[in-house]
């Protein structure tokens, strides 16, 4: 039956594994800080997600069951179990941003890149998603690209200018 199914690797390299070890060490292998550890790891995995082999690696290194790691990944919106893209664009879905018009912002992105939320562009470059408030209320409507915040995005031109920094 399953006897010969040794699992191969697609994403995990020895280099990446070493970096993951470092991250885990930074957090002193503290299982209560699993979310932070996974967020840091996600940042250095191509396409910014936690594939099964990486989750399994973390589970073994930290001695936490894989099912628990997955529970955490699936619970937090900021963690993804499916490949996203090189550049992850996040829009805030909280009230303030909605009021200040981030649907216009969303439409601008859809027009410029041809993707809706939870979608990646065909070339795997951009991914669009909503997140809870990331504290840019004062400069809303705002978006984050790979963690960097861009504010006052009221025109399509301003959105394009921001996107153009990531190519």
């Amino acid at each position: 039956m399953n006897s010969t199914k040794t699992n191969g690797f697609g994403v995990l390299t020895s280099d990446l594994a070493l970096k993951i070890d470092e991250i885990i060490q930074t957090y002193e292998s503290n299982s209560t800080r699993l979310v932070g550890i996974l967020l840091d790891i996600q940042d250095i995995v191509p396409k910014q997600y936690i594939p099964r082999e990486v989750a399994t690696y973390v589970s073994e290194r930290m001695n936490i069951p894989l099912s628990k790691v997955y529970d955490v990944i699936s619970f937090y919106a900021a963690l993804s179990d499916v490949p996203r893209a090189d550049y992850v664009i996040q829009l805030c879905d909280s009230v303030v941003c909605k009021v200040t018009g981030n649907t216009i912002l969303r439409d601008a992105i859809t027009e410029l890149l041809g993707i809706k939320e939870q979608e990646a562009t065909a070339d795997g470059k951009y991914w669009l998603e909503y997140t809870p408030c990331f504290g840019a209320c004062d400069i809303s409507p705002a978006m984050r690209i790979n963690g960097k915040v861009f504010g006052h995005l009221t025109t399509q031109a301003s959105v394009k200018a921001a996107l153009d920094q990531y190519k």
Binding site: R52, A55, P65, S67, K68, V69, Y70, S74
Partner: peptide
């Protein structure tokens, strides 16, 4: 998890997507 400690099944996701599944929704085998 608690009796067998095999830790295959877990709850995952939240709100309307809340589910009971193995990690990565893998089939049991």
């Amino acid at each position: 998890q608690k009796v067998q400690e095999v830790h295959v099944l877990t709850h995952s996701h939240r709100s309307i997507h809340y589910n009971i599944t193995p990690a990565y929704e893998m089939p049991l085998e």
